[in-house]
Lab assay of single mutants.
Amino acid sequence: AIERGSKVKILRKESYWYGDVGTVASIDKSGIIYPVIVRFNKVNYNGFSGSAGGLNTNNFAEHELEVV
């Protein structure tokens, strides 16, 4: 089962992080479509409006993740 702290591989082909491994930061139990927040070591794009980097978290559905 996917739980907080799990290392997961991203299976969503259109994702910037496809094939990468991230760490589960949290799981939303409220029934939303993409409840699993995954944190990565790298950012997906340069930040804007003065922020240092881009996003390094993204929401995924459990079926888009594979525990490694």
Score class of each variant (00 low, 15 high):
63 H>S: 11
35 P>N: 14
9 K>Y: 05
46 N>S: 09
49 S>H: 09
53 G>N: 08
53 G>P: 12
6 S>K: 06
5 G>C: 12
4 R>D: 05
11 L>P: 03
5 G>N: 04
2 I>G: 02
18 Y>Q: 02
48 F>K: 05
57 T>N: 06
37 I>P: 00
24 V>D: 00
10 I>R: 01
14 E>T: 10
59 N>V: 06
43 V>A: 09
29 K>M: 11
9 K>G: 02
35 P>W: 13
32 I>S: 15
29 K>Y: 12
4 R>Y: 10
52 A>V: 12
63 H>C: 12
10 I>P: 02
20 D>N: 08
62 E>K: 08
18 Y>G: 00
58 N>P: 03
19 G>V: 04
27 I>N: 03
62 E>C: 13
64 E>W: 03
22 G>E: 01
40 F>N: 01
49 S>V: 12
4 R>I: 15
46 N>P: 15
11 L>N: 03
13 K>G: 04
37 I>R: 11
66 E>N: 03
39 R>V: 15
24 V>S: 00
10 I>L: 02
50 G>N: 11
26 S>E: 14
1 A>T: 13
62 E>P: 11
57 T>A: 06
30 S>Q: 06
30 S>C: 09
64 E>A: 02
38 V>L: 01
47 G>F: 07
50 G>Y: 06
44 N>M: 14
35 P>M: 14
53 G>M: 10
24 V>R: 00
29 K>T: 13
67 V>W: 05
47 G>Y: 06
64 E>N: 01
54 G>Q: 09
20 D>W: 09
41 N>C: 14
49 S>L: 11
28 D>K: 05
47 G>H: 07
24 V>T: 00
6 S>D: 13
21 V>A: 02
14 E>W: 07
48 F>A: 15
27 I>E: 01
53 G>Q: 12
40 F>L: 03
1 A>N: 10
46 N>I: 09
5 G>M: 01
10 I>N: 02
7 K>Q: 13
17 W>Y: 06
29 K>I: 10
18 Y>S: 03
38 V>F: 01
55 L>R: 08
57 T>K: 07
6 S>W: 12
17 W>P: 00
28 D>E: 11
48 F>M: 13
5 G>S: 02
18 Y>I: 03
49 S>R: 04
46 N>D: 14
48 F>W: 09
65 L>S: 02
43 V>F: 14
48 F>L: 14
30 S>F: 06
1 A>D: 08
11 L>C: 09
2 I>H: 03
5 G>D: 04
66 E>T: 06
20 D>E: 14
42 K>D: 12
38 V>C: 03
38 V>E: 00
34 Y>E: 05
7 K>F: 12
32 I>K: 12
60 F>Y: 06
49 S>G: 11
26 S>V: 06
55 L>F: 11
58 N>F: 10
7 K>S: 09
21 V>C: 08
48 F>C: 15
5 G>P: 02
17 W>Q: 01
11 L>R: 03
41 N>H: 11
45 Y>P: 15
65 L>H: 00
60 F>P: 01
53 G>K: 05
25 A>G: 04
15 S>G: 01
3 E>M: 14
44 N>S: 12
5 G>W: 04
16 Y>L: 06
43 V>K: 10
15 S>A: 03
34 Y>K: 07
33 I>W: 06
44 N>C: 15
38 V>S: 00
39 R>D: 06
25 A>D: 14
61 A>G: 07
6 S>V: 14
41 N>K: 13
58 N>V: 12
63 H>P: 03
29 K>H: 14
16 Y>F: 15
44 N>Q: 14
48 F>T: 14
63 H>W: 13
53 G>E: 14
46 N>G: 09
56 N>W: 11
17 W>C: 04
26 S>W: 14
61 A>W: 06
33 I>L: 13
8 V>P: 02
60 F>C: 03
3 E>R: 14
53 G>V: 11
3 E>I: 12
42 K>F: 06
30 S>R: 07
55 L>T: 13
34 Y>Q: 05
33 I>V: 11
12 R>G: 02
15 S>E: 02
15 S>D: 06
7 K>M: 12
49 S>D: 15
4 R>S: 09
34 Y>T: 05
50 G>T: 10
54 G>F: 11
27 I>M: 04
34 Y>R: 11
55 L>W: 08
35 P>H: 11
44 N>E: 13
33 I>D: 13
12 R>I: 05
35 P>C: 13
45 Y>Q: 15
59 N>R: 12
12 R>P: 01
14 E>R: 05
1 A>S: 13
23 T>R: 04
2 I>Y: 03
20 D>Q: 09
41 N>A: 11
36 V>H: 00
4 R>Q: 13
9 K>I: 09
51 S>H: 10
55 L>D: 12
13 K>P: 10
57 T>R: 06
36 V>Y: 15
25 A>Y: 10
40 F>E: 01
7 K>A: 07
3 E>C: 15
15 S>N: 04
43 V>C: 15
62 E>D: 07
18 Y>K: 01
52 A>E: 14
14 E>K: 04
23 T>E: 10
12 R>A: 05
59 N>P: 08
13 K>Q: 10
39 R>P: 00
51 S>I: 14
7 K>Y: 13
66 E>Y: 06
59 N>W: 09
8 V>K: 01
66 E>G: 03
15 S>H: 04
57 T>Q: 10
29 K>G: 10
35 P>G: 11
13 K>R: 08
68 V>H: 02
49 S>M: 13
18 Y>C: 05
43 V>G: 10
32 I>W: 09
36 V>I: 14
1 A>K: 13
66 E>K: 08
65 L>G: 00
6 S>F: 14
37 I>Q: 11
2 I>Q: 00
20 D>P: 02
27 I>P: 02
13 K>E: 08
40 F>D: 01
68 V>G: 01
51 S>E: 15
47 G>Q: 09
19 G>S: 04
31 G>L: 12
46 N>V: 09
21 V>P: 00
2 I>F: 08
50 G>A: 10
41 N>D: 14
34 Y>M: 07
4 R>F: 08
20 D>H: 12
68 V>T: 06
35 P>T: 07
31 G>K: 10
34 Y>L: 07
10 I>M: 01
30 S>T: 12
60 F>N: 02
56 N>M: 09
64 E>M: 03
4 R>G: 05
51 S>G: 13
11 L>Y: 03
46 N>Q: 13
22 G>S: 03
68 V>P: 02
38 V>A: 00
62 E>A: 11
19 G>M: 08
7 K>D: 04
43 V>Y: 15
58 N>S: 15
62 E>V: 14
16 Y>D: 05
27 I>A: 01
43 V>P: 15
24 V>A: 01
31 G>N: 15
2 I>N: 01
15 S>P: 01
28 D>V: 07
64 E>V: 04
62 E>L: 14
5 G>A: 01
12 R>W: 02
47 G>I: 05
12 R>F: 04
13 K>H: 06
49 S>I: 12
37 I>N: 08
1 A>V: 13
23 T>G: 01
64 E>P: 01
50 G>V: 07
20 D>G: 06
3 E>W: 08
38 V>Y: 00
30 S>E: 07
20 D>A: 12
44 N>T: 07
49 S>Y: 13
9 K>C: 10
7 K>R: 10
36 V>E: 00
29 K>D: 09
48 F>H: 12
50 G>I: 06
2 I>W: 03
